[in-house]
Design a protein around this nucleic acid. Structure first.
Lengths: 377, 377
DNA sequence: CTGTGGGCAACGTGCCGACAA
DNA sequence: TTGTCGGCACGTTGCCCACAG
């Protein structure tokens, strides 16, 4: 395949991707949604797939796949994180990992870490970078306070393994930690602006790593000249259909910060939502979102409808099959449709004893249930 | 379709594209090669299409299409020129434009024009831009030589219709034309380096236009995170196959400076080469190439073989069906395979009287002839 | 005719503590 | 605790001509 570049540092990648992004375990089974993959292209090219696209009647709306490999990458130009996944549609007879608990998703938490949103002063050419006190004490090597002023040279590596050198000094009245020499080179090289965030990590070997998260997610530097967006959408569907028909491997790219929702879902997470939970109109739920300061919080809402997002092209699909309303007024940002496995209902999930029994009797009457059966369960 | 952006200035676009690029006339019939389109993706992503790609046995190696529209574009980030073409496969019964002469290709020549390759001094921060004397006199508005020194403000628009302001002054001992204030802003905004070229045009309204041609054609800022290259290749083939099966329109992007060869060829040019010329091993020919100083010159070579480039996937295709050797030793740059219509044989082309008669009797025994028959002639 | 370099003034960059939010 | 500012030194930018290829 085309993953000749080796995977990047996982801790740093996840720190840049944000707190809500977790990737399925290599070797596990996942559910892949061509529909969601298409949405990622729409989000990146800002071109809707139109009606000219042929119908791949063979292709189910969800494919159960073996996840053979995941490699972590970052865009050379912008440092935007993405990953490549090698998937292989599986004959669903071998439902080996059926309803396994949701263990082992790749999301190493890192404590020796800090993230700061850059101020106007941080990014101006007039001065350096003001380090929050606790951050400096937590992740940077301790200064020798016998020197006047205390100062040291820091070396940090970014996602591309480039080294960045900074002078770290503790001075001013009152005293504060600053990055001076080297900081402006970094800011201009990465084209950082006020509002973007930088994050520093000390890894297990004591090495410093640094990454960035841009406030302005919209990168209009689109590869317009390469392929028409129609051909991209067709390419996604045709590649998935071909892999499905021949049970062969195929590669996809997942861009967590550009994609509206994850379209490769651990099968356990999918099954738990589809087979053990009840959803009905009027039901209350919570859902996690990333906040402006890169932490996560839950918003609450109500299910207002259940049905197909695209009844013509993708009938009986679970992808975004719930229409929802949000409690808070400024909800223009949040999607009007979500998938079952993205939300946490307030009601206690149904607890089952025998999987086989439960599946037969308790499968809810949500769209796509029969389709899911055909697709091998 | 997705051509909501209107076409750019055609004169400027062609000046940036170079002397060898000419586009087929809108409304005319063309021959589209999926194989060549795939090569463009390979050139841009530097990833070969591999064997996993499904076979579209329906899809001929060349499609006769109606060219419904051509819109000219330039990459926002790099100003690299490309165009979108709207094609529709035609039922070859209506061979209306059959063997029409090669008239009316879009390639406006522009005389009020100059192009200069930038020197180290031009791009350094130490000074401005030294304008060749004849160039300044030909395309810039005349200076008022009663002033001491003579100077004026120039305004030029680039491909994106952005305005650039320059101070044009005639001074120094000996006197020379210079661009001073405003020049370095332009150089850094466009990220120009010594060796790149700038070109100025005065259009019919007397407006100044300016464009750039980069020496280093390789732009490694690839949109890696969007789609796997396999999916792109599949997308191209599937889109073409779908359009062919349904006789519907489809959109392609052609990037003349990245693509190894043009893969949308006027049908007259194609027919002339395929039906009225003889090619044989050992035959001598000439072919045009762009030189380093952006003009064109001819290289000579010999046909060393005739046969399929990819006998498995694209049997009987005319695409690059000639193996060639080049006379000059430093020929590493030039392709080892070319298509019939790219070269000019030294022998006089066969002159025919009745097209129908000629076609039946004089069709050469080159690969793809039967395929071409099936594809509707 | 035009590419490079020295001279020089104006400007921007970047380190410092003061101050206040 | 940390964001912004005035002060200030120094490095860079950019306009000029001289000189030579």
């Amino acid at each position: 395949m085309e993953g000749e570049k080796r995977s990047l540092n996982s801790e740093l990648w996840h720190a840049c991707a944000g707190p809500l992004v977790s990737l399925p375990t290599i070797g596990s089974q996942v559910v892949y949604f061509p529909q969601g993959h298409s949405e990622q292209v729409t989000a990146l090219t800002k071109k809707e797939a139109d009606a000219h696209i042929p119908n791949y009647s063979n292709l189910p709306s969800q494919l159960i796949c073996q996840l053979h490999n995941v490699t972590l990458h970052a865009e050379a130009e912008t440092d935007e994180v993405y990953c490549q996944m090698i998937l292989q549609p599986v004959n669903a007879q071998e439902k080996s990992s059926y309803l396994l608990p949701d263990l082992g998703r790749q999301n190493k938490q890192c404590n020796e870490y800090f993230c700061k949103t850059l101020t106007a002063s941080d990014t101006s050419t007039h001065g350096g970078f003001s380090i929050p006190r606790r951050a400096a004490e937590k992740v940077f090597p301790p200064l020798d306070f016998s020197q006047q002023p205390p100062a040291q040279e820091l070396v940090a590596r970014d996602l591309h393994d480039n080294e960045w050198h900074f002078r770290h000094i503790y001075r001013g009245q009152p005293r504060r930690h600053l990055l001076t020499t080297g900081w402006s080179v970094f800011v201009s090289a990465k084209r950082l602006q006020a509002g973007d965030s930088v994050l520093f990590i000390r890894d297990e070997n004591g090495q410093l790593l640094l990454g960035i998260r841009r406030a302005n997610r919209i990168q209009p530097s689109m590869p317009s000249s390469l392929l028409s967006s129609d051909s991209m959408h067709i390419g996604i569907l045709a590649a998935a259909a071909h892999a499905y028909n021949t049970s062969s491997r195929f590669a996809i790219f997942y861009n967590p910060r550009a994609s509206p929702s994850e379209f490769v879902v651990p099968i356990s997470k999918y099954n738990k939502a589809v087979y053990t939970m009840q959803f009905s109109i009027g039901m209350r739920f919570r859902m996690q979102f990333e906040t402006e300061d890169s932490s996560s919080r839950r918003y609450t809402g109500t299910i207002t409808g259940i049905g197909d997002l695209d009844p013509v092209r993708w009938p009986n699909s679970y992808w975004r099959s719930l229409k929802v309303g949000w409690d808070e007024s400024a909800s223009g940002e949040r999607q009007k449709r979500v998938s079952l496995w993205e939300i946490e209902p307030f009601t206690t999930p149904f607890l089952f004893c025998s999987p086989a029994l439960t599946l037969r009797t308790k499968r809810p009457r949500t769209p796509g249930a029969e389709q899911a059966m055909i697709n091998g369960k």
